[in-house]
Write a protein that binds this DNA or RNA. Structure first.
Length: 494
RNA sequence: CGGGAUGUAGCGCAGCCCGGUUAGCGCGCCACGUUCGGGACGUGGAGGUCGAAGGUUCGAAUCCUUUCAUCCCGACCA
């Protein structure tokens, strides 16, 4: 972790360790018995469910419907699209047999050698092939288009090194797969969906992102164009948080999906695919958390308000909780999710720490003093500021506060992100910023894959994207000195 | 698949170099009591084939061999 950053965030040297501990301690997820796989615990899954619901609503608003395609893909499907197989071949789980038997030579069970599949099945790493093989049967004419389908599913990519949420062997995601009549319509769709992702990140996750195009080298296997949203984590590394691909006619050709056009001529269908995964959970954690634990944006927090009673003896507890129930009813009537923690086997200080660790946005504490004064102590998780407010109209106060927290978390992330974008003109400067500051770097690039790879090998930094909003600007490549017409966005990334 | 490390109670570890009672400690767990406005304390209790197999020895968590697993650093990647 870069020096300057340590001062900025106060975060310890080993950010990876810190991240991993936080995920486990906050009860979001843990590694499982299966190598590289993850158990998402109820609290983590509750956040994912809120993300799912919000995204799904956005997909519906843009005219998409959900469907489900098989987990297994015949091996031969993969070889249809050359780049696609190249991109995924190295990380596939392959099913070769369909039966076990008792071990004839001893204990346990073994794979029945007689149960070998004629054609191996691949556990989907992504579903383009199986879906386009299906679309072939659904599309005859331009009247069958567009097809705008999304699927919520799990996929498997046999990664060598895994990290909770950021890279696991199996992960949950959604993948949209659309089919269009014209190139323009497909391009428009790909553009529309990366914008949906950006809006989701900003409005729900309070996560500012930079939208742009991937370079040829970083493109999705089989795509003509890949759009991405790139977010910045607190350790100065970038995280690709969502992608939307314009697939051209590649998959239509590979799976022979032609349609009769308005002019009566046959043409191949134009395609897009787009997806976000449980990796967004990682983004959420790494973008907002502080040394006390998670900081969840109120719109994604499974429970927005926790109420903790202070009391001596059962009598007092009853009184306080009764008051809390009244307040909770008022909050719930406004659509706010509330939990009253009346456990008597842990002390209030323990509860305070626990809910901070879990990132509950608002905490309300009521004790005998407050009861007498008809007030409550309210703490906001993002700033840890406490305030004592009258119980009267507390629902309005909390409603306002939740909105303010959501906004504040976002503004804070924007401020941090903006402070971590550095313009650089020489390679020396580039290396220096990477090592000492991190973050995004805007620099000139000559547009060749060779230079891009050379920079990656020297610095581990990659071109995250060519931002949509980048201005034309004459310059020279910082490594080769060749002419460049715009700056691109570099960073070290997850 | 290269380089490094680690496997001892649910979790985190000590003990191993230099073999020797009944294998310890912290957290957590259970019971009771005192506590309760920022991670409580006391007393009692439960919980272990020391990763596995083999060997050396009167005796192995400790030494030797083999093996399995996990983690970290590379190559790969949303």
């Amino acid at each position: 972790m870069a020096k300057e950053l340590k001062e900025l965030t106060g975060r310890s040297e080993n950010y990876s360790q810190w991240y991993n501990d936080l995920v486990v301690k906050a009860g979001l997820a843990e590694s499982s018995a299966v190598r590289g796989c993850m158990v998402i615990k109820p609290y983590g899954y509750a956040i994912w469910e809120k993300m799912q619901r919000a995204l799904d609503d956005m997909f519906k608003e843009t005219g998409h419907v959900n469907a489900y395609f098989p987990l297994f893909i015949p091996k031969s499907f993969f070889s249809r699209e050359a780049d696609h197989v190249e991109g995924f071949a190295k990380e596939c789980a392959v099913v070769t047999h369909y039966r076990l038997m008792n071990n004839p030579d001893g204990e346990g069970v073994v794979v029945d050698p007689d149960a070998r599949l004629e054609e191996e099945l691949i556990v989907r790493p992504t579903s383009e092939t199986i879906i386009w093989n299906t679309y072939k049967n659904w599309i005859q004419s331009y009247r069958d288009l567009p097809i705008l389908i999304n699927q919520w599913a799990n996929v498997v990519r046999w990664e060598m090194r895994t990290r909770l949420f950021l890279r696991t062997a199996e992960f949950l995601w959604q993948e949209g797969h659309t089919a269009h009549e014209t190139r323009e319509q497909a391009l428009e769709e790909a553009d529309k969906m990366i914008n949906v992702y950006a809006r989701f990140a900003q409005n729900w996750m309070a996560l500012p992102v930079i939208m742009g195009r991937k370079t040829a080298n970083e493109r999705f296997a089989g795509a003509e164009e890949t759009y991405t949203i790139e977010a910045l984590m607190q350790d100065g590394k970038a995280l690709q948080s969502g992608t939307s691909h314009f697939l051209g006619q590649n998959f239509a050709r590979a799976f022979d999906v032609q349609f009769a056009g308005r002019d009566g001529k046959l043409d191949y269908v134009w395609a897009t695919s787009w997806g976000v995964s449980t990796r967004l959970m990682g983004a959420l954690i790494m973008a907002h958390s502080d040394d006390n634990g998670l900081v969840l944006p109120p719109r994604l927090a499974p429970t927005q308000v926790v109420m903790i009673p202070i009391y001596k003896g059962e009598e007092e507890l009853k009184k306080v909780v009764a008051e809390m129930e009244k307040i909770a009813a008022g909050l719930r009537a406004k659509g706010i999710t509330v939990k009253i923690d009346d456990r008597d086997n842990v002390r209030s200080g323990f509860k305070f720490a626990e809910y901070e660790l879990k990132g509950f946005p608002v905490r309300i504490v009521i004790g005998p003093r407050d009861l007498a004064a008809h007030s409550a102590e309210i703490m906001r998780r993002d700033t840890l500021e406490k305030e004592t407010v009258p119980i009267e109209n507390i629902d309005e106060y909390v409603t306002r506060l939740l909105a303010e927290i959501q906004d504040n978390i976002y503004q804070k992330a924007v401020k941090f992100r903006d402070s971590m974008i550095t313009k650089v003109d020489t390679f020396e400067e580039f290396q220096k910023v990477l090592d000492e500051k991190g973050g995004f770097i805007l620099a000139h690039w000559d547009g060749t894959t060779e230079t891009e790879i050379a920079i990656k090998e020297k610095t581990k930094a990659t071109i995250r994207c060519i931002p949509f909003d980048s201005q034309e600007e004459e310059g020279v490549d910082m490594l080769t000195g060749k002419p460049s017409h715009r700056r691109v966005l570099f960073a070290r990334s997850y």
